[in-house]
Design a binder for these strands. Structure first.
Lengths: 341, 341
DNA sequence: ATAACTGATGTTATCGATGTCATTCCCGCT
DNA sequence: AGCGGGAATGACATCGATAACATCAGTTAT
């Protein structure tokens, strides 16, 4: 046996100052080789039960912690998953905030239980040539998962799960997203059922999810007497105010506004109400997301918790070497004051 | 020179299948040693400018990425910071969600710019004996940064920044938190200014932040004729409903409710309104956080963006070897319908 | 009795980067 | 010619863990 005198070795370790204890230190303490320590801590049946517990107790008593870098280097697994967010350079906050961040909570819970670390980064950071990626898989949150972001992530050659609407063109990748089309359908049916005839849709359908919402809406009102007109509008409350103000100027002739998101709907309410119109008697207004829980606003609720858990689940499947299919999450119509007096 | 024939070596590399390119591969491609590659990629002046750019171009062209584990192992720096969240085991979501998660957005932005990875984990996970910590520093988000969580984090012997109210007992640690006492004071002055005399405070002052809010409130109304009564109440809307219902049973005699958070305030509004009382004519109601942006609710706004940036800034100071002091962030009174008809 | 096997442990090489020290080359100076 | 010195490059050891293979009792099979 080549194990050196225990006392001498331990003294050396303590001389190292701030340096933390390693498996080698534990090995000398337990008078075994370090591979035995490694095996014991991993609960390998190759180590006698008795020895195993002794080593674990020693580790616990000395507050030993495995060195993540060393393990990752040797095993070629990072034991972590990176979520890539799109940040708004102006505000310095994630797009779709706080929705995406709520999903992150769901991811965190699932991954922590599975002993995977969850790493957050921005797209700008990860695509930079000198970025250092330390992950077994990537979860992409893009602005509607635009193609560029998508292709960039692909190049990392890691298991990939994307939040957004599935794209036919990329049928080899797992997409997870709310059923936006169904959400649009629910809203369309609701508005048509209220007898609305002239619906103004606010949103930019270059954004995949918005396009789906619009498609659902139009499909649902097709059988009715209602007509849908579209105006391009970005996601902010301010953008919405501007568009509605313009429409009022041009001579308003709508009895319903279907907005692509809650803030957009609130922007519409702001301007319409200050122009003396009332919801829902003069105009019915709907949003999308139910992120704000505004008592005034009829909207379609997405299940953010489920979103996080589903994304994490798909990733874990991929990491386990299984196939992962896309998932369409259910949505729910929430009727409130803006369409229901 | 021991550098083997380039062609042969490159062929070997490609035979490795999925294995990514390493510095050694780049070195053979560039006909230099791997240490030169290492230096070139780190912009060391020890490498001739010409050689440096050639190597960088090669790296870029072949999509080379530095191995995080190898670097961390050698340099003993993880290039990452771990945020530790307290999760509610029942809901599987972070306490104070979505507020904390909004702060995370601010952290992410700052750390990504500094090329630090942001890792998320839960307290339950990180304190488990077999957890693997891979971070240069810890940021703790606790339920009021309770002492136990606090002591646990300390044991990791890493730079530590805590979100919450500063504690005299731990004056060697950097705390970052909103000025809860000032928030309480603003609310107290506001309610007293409205002529309210019997204020019901809802909250559990075992929670440090709540205690501060209460202290500020009581201090502010001391000079006035108003009296503050406290009822212990947890953070949920449901808990609040129960407490208010009980108070109504016992014979209501308050003209103001100061809740420790927005959901608690909304719970109070729910019950009071369904009992036929009106805000603010019968009861003025206030919240705290402005997380919900409810048009009905007077509240104190915290600056979550600033919170994230400040926390990240303090951590970067510590990582740079500097001292970090605690910070008290400004708050703002937002008057809305529940106190202002 | 000997080969084959099983269970528990140890030795060595390795993962990919970088700190430390050694080497080489070229220049200018005496 | 020879020596000192700086600039550029390389060899080697190392970080802490684990995979792959080796060893060595003690047991069972033939």
């Amino acid at each position: 046996m080549k194990i050196p005198d225990a006392k001498e070795k331990v003294a050396t370790a303590s001389h190292r100052g701030g340096t933390a204890m390693t498996m080698a230190d534990l090995a000398t303490l337990a008078s075994v080789s370090k591979i035995t320590v490694s095996r014991a801590l991993r609960d390998s049946s190759l180590v006698r039960e008795e020895v195993r517990t002794r080593i674990k107790e020693l580790a616990e008593a000395h507050g030993y912690r495995l060195n993540a870098a060393a393990r990752s280097l040797r095993t070629r697994r990072a034991h972590s998953v990176t979520a890539v967010l799109e940040m708004d350079p102006a505000s310095g906050r994630p797009y779709s905030d706080p929705l995406i961040l709520t999903v992150i909570g769901g991811l965190l819970q699932t991954f922590a239980m599975q002993r995977y670390r969850l790493v957050l980064t921005t797209r700008a950071e990860i695509v930079s040539a000198t970025s250092v990626v330390d992950a077994d898989g990537l979860i992409l949150f893009g602005q509607g998962a635009n193609d560029e972001a998508f292709q960039q992530m692909r190049r990392f050659n890691l298991p990939l799960v994307v939040w957004g609407s599935a794209r036919a063109a990329f049928d080899d990748v797992a997409f997870v997203g709310s059923d936006n089309r169904e959400g649009g359908r629910l809203l369309g049916a609701h508005l048509a059922g209220l007898g609305r005839r002239r619906i103004l849709f606010l949103g930019d359908s270059a954004h995949e999810e918005v396009a789906d919402r619009l498609a659902g809406l139009t499909g649902a009102v097709r059988k009715s007497a209602a007509k849908v007109t579209t105006r391009i509008c970005q996601f902010s409350r301010e953008a919405s105010r501007a568009v509605i103000a313009e429409e009022l100027d041009k001579g308003w002739d709508f009895d319903a506004v279907a907005a692509c998101s809650d803030p957009v709907a609130l922007g519409a309410l702001d301007v319409l109400e200050s122009a003396g119109m009332r919801a829902p008697s003069d105009v019915a207004v709907t949003g999308f997301d139910d992120a704000i829980h505004d008592p005034r606003l009829t909207t379609v609720r997405q299940d953010w918790d489920l979103a996080g858990r589903t994304l994490a689940g798909k990733m874990l499947d991929l990491l386990a070497g299984e196939e992962a299919t896309s998932a369409l999450l259910p949505v729910e119509l929430v009727v409130r004051a803006s369409t229901d007096a």
